[in-house]
């Protein structure tokens, strides 16, 4: 039987996850829990209920069909007991306003391939292809491996975006079917890394080493969060990596955006960095300038 995976989105015509026009396949599940994550619904490996509170009219239809007593209306507010949800999908069907959905769907390789191949002409004209992202795609290793192999067979170029917090062996095994690796670099100091993401970064950096040594083109992706990673020290470490790995294909800084916050409430987790606004383009440009001054000529805004 062919592998399946829990996919939470397939975005076609994506132009921000590697070169050219791409189809980005987002897999669920990640071992990190970054404070600034803008896809908090990707963290859990399982499907989950998602509540679009802006769309809810409080009609109460969901509560009528739910057998697990998940939906409550208290003081004119629709509250949800996410823990109790058994993902039966009845309320999603009942809601006429699309306020509820279940994030994450089990898809087979064939199903994903069908969607990926539809844009083949766009890939070949633009140097694009598939990007496997997440979550952490290497966690659903056999699926990812097989999917990428299939892509290579079909002549679709492949990118994988990884947090780097994965098994060395898996990383090493998958690289031959990856054309470009998008490797996250979030925080330079390991203790701080653990504070903000839940895990230290030693093994991540070791994996970066391993990957780099294979000669695979790597684009370093650096989320920059004001007050956390917009520091001189962190920028200098980015520059240090740049020097250590002269053949890096690129360095992208990803300015913080607060969109993840709303989604956190939508899946029943707590807001983080609630007071932090999204980065303005001007500030992002300043960061870029700083990096360039440090000698990071490859840096650009992703």
């Amino acid at each position: 039987m062919s592998e399946t995976a829990i996919v939470f989105d397939i975005q076609r015509a994506s132009i921000h996850d590697g070169p050219g026009i791409r189809t980005t396949v987002f897999l669920k599940g990640c071992l990190l829990d970054c404070l600034w994550c803008h896809n908090p619904e990707a963290v859990s490996a399982k499907p989950q209920l998602f509540f679009h509170f802006d769309k809810c009219t409080q009609c109460g239809d969901c509560a009528k069909v739910c057998e697990e007593d998940v939906h409550h209306f208290i003081d004119g507010k629709h509250t949800i007991d996410f823990e109790k949800c058994s993902l039966c999908g009845k309320c999603v069907e009942a809601c006429n306003y699309n306020a509820l959905k279940i994030i994450g769907k089990e898809l087979s390789i064939d199903e994903v391939m069908r969607e990926v191949m539809a844009d083949f002409d766009f890939y070949s004209n633009s140097g694009g292809g598939i990007t496997l992202s997440g979550g952490e795609p290497l966690l659903q290793f056999s699926f990812s491996m097989e999917l990428l192999q299939r892509c290579k067979e079909m002549g679709v170029s492949t990118c994988v975006e990884t947090s780097g917090y994965v098994s060395e062996v898996h990383l090493w095994e998958i690289l031959p079917v990856v054309d470009i690796l998008l490797f996250d670099y979030k925080i330079s100091r390991s203790d701080e890394h653990r504070n903000y993401t839940g895990v230290p970064n030693d093994s991540i950096l070791r994996n970066l080493d391993i990957a780099y040594d294979t000669g695979i083109p790597i684009i370093l992706r650096c989320p920059v969060v004001p007050g956390i990673s917009d520091t001189e020290h962190h920028f200098k470490s980015i520059r240090a990596l740049d020097e250590k790995y002269p053949n890096l294909k690129g360095i992208e800084i990803l300015p913080y955006h607060n969109i993840g916050n709303n989604k956190r409430t939508s899946i029943g987790t707590h807001e983080t960095l609630a007071d932090l606004n999204s980065t303005s383009p001007e500030v992002a440009a300043q960061w870029l300038e700083q990096l360039k001054e440090l000698g990071c000529v490859k840096a650009r805004i992703g």
């Binding site: 992706r221 990803l254 709303n262 980065t279």
Partner: peptide
């Protein structure tokens, strides 16, 4: 309507109001 937000694009109508 797709709009670019930071390092990704998103369907405009799916974004929260403030965004």
């Amino acid at each position: 309507l797709f709009v670019r937000i930071g390092g990704f694009s998103s369907r405009y109508i799916d974004l929260p109001r403030d965004v």
